[in-house]
């Protein structure tokens, strides 16, 4: 087999994970349905007044996005861990960091991207203005990859632990708070007429910072868990 380039490895892992996920389509939909359900519950709890809903829309959507991305984290490695392919992957003479990056991209495409695509529809439930909807999509587009990247570290650390699902949320949610603050803040800024450039810039900075460090840290976490 010819020497696999890093980009080739990345593409291979992403394609493989997406293929596997598509075979069990239900998993992908559960994340999406959970997101829609959580967002739709709030108006029932808070009441139908339009201006109240408009004010809290971005916060609700963002918290739901955080929870939805937590939901699918344990499944990231559990299938490969169970049937031993994860061990083979680690033994392969390929860079584990890029392999983990592939896992991150696959997880984001399965749990982050659907949220971004469906967010505008949910925004209408909260009667958000079109600029606010546009900003929500943009902020989510920047924010959800960070959630996946931080989440992968939690998933790698809690590999194979019983009760891992709850544990991964306890470990990862505190670290996602800055993303929540600036993500929801971006839409808030647009609602109140200010420019949201500062929020988006910070979100972008977090994303690049996470992109540089999290694959390596997650690879270390995998080595620790698989010892």
């Amino acid at each position: 087999m010819n020497k696999l380039s890093l980009a080739g490895l990345l593409g291979l892992v992403v394609r493989r994970d997406l293929l596997l996920a598509m075979r069990r389509r239900a998993d992908v939909l559960t994340t999406l349905i959970f997101f829609v359900m959580v967002v739709s519950l709030f108006p029932l709890g808070v009441g139908p007044e339009q201006d109240m809903l408009r004010k809290m829309a971005s916060g609700v959507v963002w918290v739901a996005a955080l929870l939805a991305s937590m939901l699918s984290l344990p499944r990231m490695f559990s299938a490969d861990y169970a049937d031993g392919t994860l061990e083979q992957m680690m033994l392969a003479p390929q860079s584990l960091t890029v392999l983990v990056l592939g896992k991150i991209v696959a997880h984001w495409m399965l749990s982050g991207l659907p949220l971004v695509l469906i967010a505008p529809v949910l925004g209408l439930q909260f009667d958000m203005s079109t600029q606010a909807l546009g900003m929500l999509v943009l902020a989510l587009l920047l924010g959800t990859p960070i959630l996946s990247m931080i989440g992968v570290i939690g998933a790698a650390l809690t590999l194979g632990l019983r009760g891992g699902g709850v544990l991964v949320s306890l470990l990862v949610l505190p670290l996602c708070i800055p993303v929540l603050i600036f993500g929801a803040g971006a839409v808030e800024a647009v609602n109140s007429g200010m420019s949201a450039v500062s929020n988006l810039a910070l979100l972008g900075a977090f994303m690049i910072f996470a992109l540089v460090f999290t694959p390596f840290v997650a690879a270390q976490a995998l080595r620790i868990s698989m010892e």
């Binding site: 570290i153 650390l157 505190p174 670290l175 708070i177 840290v217 270390q220």
Partner: peptide, 20 residues
Amino acid sequence: AAALLAIVGSVNVPIIYFSV
């Protein structure tokens, strides 16, 4: 595992403080 989490956490403490 806990050590790795503590290191990642300590990197985030300043970020969390300033964002809050």
